[in-house]
Structures are given as C-alpha cells and as structure tokens.
C-alpha cells in the first residue's frame, strides 16, 4: 500500500523514521489491529484517520509502547525506530518514551503547578543544569504549546485549574519540553476552540522542521491542512496510506472515499 509516486525533492528530504511491518494487536480476544504496515517519515506529519473504534489510538500507543501498561494487550509484528526494533527485549520502554513523546486523547495534566507540569520531563531526564535553564525550557515549551501568554502570570497555579483546552495545550507543552524526536498526538485538538486549534496546527507545522509528528484526528480538514501523509484505518485494518493530497482527492479504496465524503464513520 506504500505510495511510491513522490516528487524528487520529497524523496531527498524524507527518510523513514518509523517502519512498522505486520503489526497485530489483541486486547484479550479482541483483534484491534490487523496486520498493519506503515512507514512514518522523518520531518513529516502523518495523520491517522478513521471511524471511532477502528484502532487509531491503539496503533499510536504501539509506537511508544504505552500498550505495555495494559495487561491484556498483546502486540505482534515489528516496529523499527531508526532501524532498531523497539520491541526488542533489550529495549527499555522508558528510554524509548523519552524519544517518542505523546499527547493523549483526554487532557491529563499532573495535579501540580503549571510550571512543574512542564518542568517534570526535563527534570527527570536531566536536561537543565540549573534553575535558569529550566525556566528557559519551560517558557519555550509553553510558547510552543501556544499557552504562554495565558499562563505566564500564574505558573505556580495548579495545571488542573485550567480550562479543558488550556489543559490540552499544557500537555502539548509538556510533551515538547523533553525534545522528543517523534511526537504522537491523539486528537490533540478535540477540546480546543478554532483559535487554539490554529495555534496548535502552527506548532505542528513548526515541529515538522525537526521532528516527525503523528496525529490522530477526526477532522478531515485538519488532516488535510497539517499532514503530508495520511493513513486511513477501518475496523483494525490499514485501508489506505499515501500522500494526503492524493487520499483526499483521488482515494483508491471505496471505503476511504465513503469515509472522507461522510458516508461511513
């Protein structure tokens, strides 16, 4: 299903960051992901779309091994990050997650101050040598999360006291503060107003300069706006994967077409 008709300059700029082959996920008896193969490129935004319950979040959580925390979840297949198998027994998932950051579907700030929310990651990874550096990292992350102006006067206030949309942007700031190489975002804008959404999309665009971003979204427009590549999931299958332009204009699979035109989902 890999789309090979790329423009020459794209081929130069893009190299595979994550490569998944034959991924199967079971939750007990539920077969949630069925034999999925995906190449996620560096410095690219990849969008996962599909109807509710089709396995987008599940697949996303395979990429930073968050599924390890679910006892009944079994992952099979191969997922390579920079050519290394992340499910190799030698891999420590904690080290992996420092490289592959995640923003969750539901905003989940720590019940600590706004500052501590963002500073927590850099602290445990030893990214700052002193308070001034940490302050700088926190400010930069909050600016990138498009929330700095709203919280700069109350960094000591609890993160849980923010509105839902603000909390989500705080979580984005928290995720970028550790400078991950890959950022996984599970419906990051579902609780945001159009202005904040635009800011987050701008951030995603900026992150693309250095990182690879995977975003799950229910908004076709958002997928079309921010992503270069789109994967369409349906009932655990990867139905179609290719350049965003192509998927939205000339989809190959009839299911993709029905979904993006609003007939299934």
């Amino acid at each position: 299903m890999r789309d090979n008709t790329q423009t020459p300059e794209a081929q130069v700029a893009q190299k595979s960051k994550i490569s998944a082959t034959g991924v199967q996920v079971h939750y007990g008896d539920t077969h949630a992901i069925k034999d999925v193969n995906v190449e996620i490129e560096d410095k690219t935004v990849t969008a996962f779309i599909g109807p509710s319950g089709c396995g987008k979040s599940t697949f996303l959580r395979c990429i930073n091994r968050m599924n390890d925390t679910i006892d009944i979840c079994r992952v099979q297949g191969k997922i390579l990050l920079d050519g290394e198998d992340i499910y190799d027994p030698k891999v420590d998932p904690v080290q992996l997650r420092a490289k592959v950051g995640m923003v969750f579907q539901k905003p989940n700030p720590f019940p600590k101050s706004i500052y501590d929310n963002v500073a927590y990651g850099p602290r445990i990874h030893g990214l700052a040598r002193n308070k001034a550096e940490l302050d700088e990292i926190v400010e930069r992350a909050l600016r990138r999360g498009a929330i700095w102006d709203e919280v700069k006067d109350r960094l000591a206030a609890p993160g849980t006291g923010l509105s839902g949309g603000q909390q989500q942007r705080l979580c984005i700031a928290r995720a970028v503060a550790t400078e991950p190489e890959v950022l996984l975002m599970d419906e990051p804008c579902s609780a945001l107003d159009p202005i904040a959404t635009a800011q987050v999309e701008e951030l995603i665009d900026e992150l693309r300069q250095n990182y690879s971003v995977v975003i799950v979204t229910h908004s076709m427009q958002q997928a079309a706006r921010v992503s270069q590549r789109t994967a369409f999931f349906h009932l655990g299958n990867l139905v179609e994967f290719g350049d965003t332009d192509k998927i939205f204009t000339t989809p190959e699979d009839p299911r993709t077409e029905s979904y993006i035109t609003g007939r299934i989902g």
């Binding site: 997650r97 420092a98 950051g101 969750f104 989940n108 720590f110 927590y120 990651g121 503060a177």
Partner: peptide, 26 residues
C-alpha cells in the same frame, strides 16, 4: 486516575518514578 500514570510514563518517567512522584502523593 490511570491517566496520571499514562502522563508520567508518556514523558519518559519510569514506573517507579510515576508511582513515587505522582501516584503516591495523590
């Protein structure tokens, strides 16, 4: 809430860090 554990693990905390920094104080 499990989401707190996810949040900690998501930024690269170890299981023990997530327990002692976040879960236990709560």
């Amino acid at each position: 809430p499990p989401s707190i554990r996810d949040a900690a693990l998501g930024v690269g905390a170890s299981k023990m860090q997530s327990v002692f920094h976040h879960v236990l104080p709560l």
